[in-house]
Amino acid sequence: MKIIFVLIAVSLLVALGFLAAFIWAVKSGQYEDDYTPSIRMLFDDKPAPSSRSANPKIHSTDK
């Protein structure tokens, strides 16, 4: 039955791990915006325009 000490220690550690994960998630702001990511994930990651000079007009607006 001594194994139960090990088991309890392990189970508490796992639970603490989840608590830490929860606190990290809150801290990193994951609960502040729970809607936008659902749209964001729909976009394919397109390769960035190969050269900025491809659209000089837009580029020039912020000069």
Binding site: A54, N55, P56, K57, I58
Partner: peptide, 13 residues
Amino acid sequence: ILNANDLCAFYDL
């Protein structure tokens, strides 16, 4: 923007 990039052509804003 996409149009310009895909066609590799300038466009006039």
